[in-house]
Amino acid sequence: MARQQPIELFMPPNMLKAKVGGGLGGVDMAAMKRAEGALDTLKSEFGDWIAEDVKVLIAARARYAKTPDEASRGALMRAAHDIKGQAATFNFPLIARVAGSLSRLIGELPESQPLSLSLVDGHVNAIQVIHRQGIQDTNDKMAQTLCAELDARVEETLKPKK
C-alpha cells in the first residue's frame, strides 16, 4: 500500500488577472482582427522563411551523411521537427506533412539503427520540390502521391522485423 505522503495543493494569488483585469466582455474582437491583419501582412514573407528552414534541413542532411552520429542525427531531427511545425503555420501544409513523416522516421527508429539515407533524401527532395513549385494546396495530386509513398516507406521501415 502506498505510504501517505503530504500533498500540498494551493492556489497562488492571481497576479495576472489583477494586472490586466478585464474579461467581462469576452474576446476582444478588435484585437483579433488587428492580429489577423498583421499576420496577413507577414504572409508575403512565409515563402522566404520556409526557404531558409529548407536550407537548414539540407545542411543537416549533409552533416548526417558525412558523419552519421548522435549529434548529426539530433540536428536532422530538430530541422525536420521545426519544419513540421513551421510549415503548417506558414501555409505549406504538405511540406509540414512530409517533415512530419521524416520526424517520425528519425524519432521512432531505434537509435541503434542507422537512418536510411535514401529515405531521408526522399523526404528532403520532396520538401524541396513542393517548396520550389509553391504547392500550398493539400489536394495537389502529385504532392499527395509523393506524401503517401513516403508515409508507406516510413511505415515499412518502422514495422517490427519478424
Binding site: L16, K19, V20, G21, G22, G23, L24, G25, G26, V27, D28, M29, A30, A31, E45, W49, E52, D53, D82, G85, Q86, T89, F90
Partner: peptide, 21 residues
C-alpha cells in the same frame, strides 16, 4: 471589447527560430 490591459503584460517569447519568434 474584453477590457484586458494587455499593455501591462510582460511576455517572454522563447524560440530558436527567428521567424517563429
Amino acid at each position: 471589447m474584453s477590457g484586458y490591459r494587455f499593455d501591462r503584460l510582460k511576455v517572454l517569447v522563447v524560440d530558436d527560430n527567428a521567424h517563429m519568434r
